[in-house]
Deep mutational scan, measured.
Amino acid sequence: TVKFKYKGEEKQVDISKIKKVWRVGKMISFTYDEGGGKTGRGAVSEKDAPKELLQ
């Protein structure tokens, strides 16, 4: 599970739902399947990112 803040809201998403991951400076950005055909997005700092996300 990845915990992150998006627009001031605390969120979390299961690693299995993450589609795409990329690095922006010291942040790790990602998109994930929100269900219902929607794609969500989020970002975590490199130090807070789970190891599975960095692979």
Rank of each mutant, 00 (worst) to 15 (best):
T1N: 08
T1I: 15
T1R: 07
T1A: 11
T1C: 08
V2C: 03
V2P: 01
V2L: 14
V2R: 01
V2S: 01
K3C: 09
F4Q: 01
F4T: 02
K5L: 13
K5S: 14
K5R: 13
K5C: 10
K5T: 14
K5N: 13
K5Y: 15
K5W: 15
K5G: 05
Y6R: 06
Y6W: 14
Y6A: 06
Y6H: 10
K7F: 10
K7G: 09
K7V: 03
G8T: 05
E9W: 06
E9A: 12
E9S: 09
E10P: 08
E10A: 09
Q12G: 04
Q12K: 08
Q12A: 10
Q12T: 15
V13R: 01
V13W: 02
V13D: 00
D14F: 12
D14L: 14
D14V: 07
I15L: 13
I15V: 09
K17D: 11
K17A: 14
I18W: 01
I18P: 00
I18C: 02
K19A: 06
K20G: 07
V21F: 07
R23W: 11
R23G: 03
R23Y: 07
R23P: 03
V24H: 15
V24I: 14
G25M: 03
I28L: 11
I28N: 00
I28F: 04
S29H: 15
F30D: 00
F30W: 01
T31E: 09
T31Y: 10
Y32Q: 00
Y32H: 02
D33W: 08
E34M: 14
G35K: 05
G36Y: 10
G36S: 11
G36M: 11
G36H: 12
G37D: 06
G37A: 04
K38F: 09
K38R: 13
K38H: 10
T39V: 15
T39P: 05
G40A: 10
R41F: 12
G42R: 01
G42S: 03
G42M: 03
A43K: 13
S45C: 09
S45F: 13
E46M: 12
E46Y: 14
E46K: 09
E46V: 14
K47E: 14
K47D: 13
D48G: 07
D48L: 11
D48C: 09
D48T: 08
D48A: 10
P50M: 04
P50I: 04
P50K: 02
E52N: 06
E52W: 15
L53E: 01
L53Q: 01
L54R: 08
Q55K: 13
Q55A: 14
Q55I: 15
Q55D: 14
